[in-house]
């Protein structure tokens, strides 16, 4: 197999010795199949025993070795060095984001685990079944949604790269909501959709649909699809929080005019709390920056309306 040298730039931080984190560079001989984890093990054993990272299964299932590789959270054992080198010229390795650092590439995952715990992440099974020797009858079809979400290995990649979490520390994160949906979609769960109302508190509407949780998931769990499904359930269950009203106002505007009525979107979303921003609104009006709340429907609006009718949550 052809070998070549690759340059690894690794963010180091040992609170016992360092005041600040700093990058260190290592050269590693690689072949076409070598993974980032293989290379880190090589560096640790041949060059620098103090280099610290988590790892266990080396086959992409235990979720230990999540870290940022050239700016994106990935599993080191499932990322080939050559792919990174070809794309970026070097391999920049850093600990995951949205979590404090314990040492080098080891992130303190407690924020992640506490968010998972907020969703009561277990099946509330029917305890009347205790001692019964009969399984619940379910088809593969019926458990498809849960089975897909249960592929989650809790590596934290989605949480690390979640842009909403950066700004909203109350946002529970993609993995947490995916886990909730795993139980909501499970016919055996005694709580089921009753799990949904508590999700507004957990930041159900904070997700911006950036899709990083989909693209960064090493198990293709697609947490953002669970978030969308939970939002629809929440909306149908009468959720009138700002997030739900925003969606409703958005759809109403499109339905009515075929365009986005920014003024009405704002007014309908914020409701009476608009008065808090009265000062700003007046200033904008004076400067001619406030959009008009009066829009005329576009031509052929009926076609738009029929599309909205098909896709809209919770309304006929």
């Amino acid at each position: 197999m052809k070998t070549q040298e690759a340059s690894f730039r690794i963010l180091r931080f040992n609170p016992e010795k360092d005041e600040k984190s700093h990058h260190e560079t290592y050269r590693v001989k690689i072949d076409s199949r070598m993974t980032i984890l293989d290379a880190l093990e090589d560096i640790k054993h041949a060059q620098d025993a103090a280099l610290t990272f988590r790892r266990s299964c080396r086959s992409g299932i235990c979720g230990s070795c999540a870290m940022r590789i050239n700016g994106f959270a990935k599993l080191a054992c499932k990322t080939r060095v050559l792919d990174e080198v070809e794309r970026h010229g070097e391999v920049l390795v850093e600990p995951m984001e949205n979590m404090p650092v314990i040492r080098d590439l080891v992130a303190d995952m407690n924020p992640f685990w506490s968010e998972i715990d907020r969703g009561s992440p277990w099946l509330e099974w029917d305890t009347n079944l205790e001692g019964s020797i009969k399984e619940n009858l379910i088809t593969d079809q019926q458990q498809q949604v849960s089975a897909k979400l249960a592929d989650c290995i809790m590596c934290g990649c989605c949480f690390s790269d979640c842009v909403s979490r950066v700004f909203d520390k109350n946002f529970t994160g993609p993995a947490s909501l995916a886990k909730v949906q795993r139980f909501v979609a499970d016919s055996r769960d005694k709580v089921g959709v009753k799990r949904v109302p508590s999700l507004v508190e957990m930041g159900l509407w904070s997700c911006t649909h950036c899709y990083f949780c989909w693209s960064q998931c090493p198990r293709d769990v697609r947490p953002v699809t669970a978030i969308s499904a939970l939002r629809a359930l929440s909306f149908r269950a009468g959720d009138r929080s700002h997030g739900a009203r925003h969606v409703d106002a958005f759809m109403s505007s499109i339905e009515r005019t075929g365009m986005l009525n920014e003024a009405m979107l704002y007014l309908k979303t914020m409701g009476w709390t608009t008065v808090r921003d009265l000062d700003l609104i007046l200033k904008m009006m004076v400067k001619g920056k406030a959009p008009s709340p009066f829009l005329k429907p576009i031509p052929k609006i009926d076609e738009i309306r029929s599309i909205v009718k098909e896709g809209r949550w919770g309304k006929k």
Binding site: W122, S132, E135, N136, T139, D140, Q143
Partner: peptide, 23 residues
């Protein structure tokens, strides 16, 4: 063994199913 499997199923294990919905 059968008791242990059924218990796991009750607890939430997503076993692959046969066409009649059984494990």
């Amino acid at each position: 063994a059968p008791r242990a499997i059924i218990e796991l199923e009750h607890w939430g294990v997503l076993f692959s199913r046969s066409e009649n919905g059984r494990i």
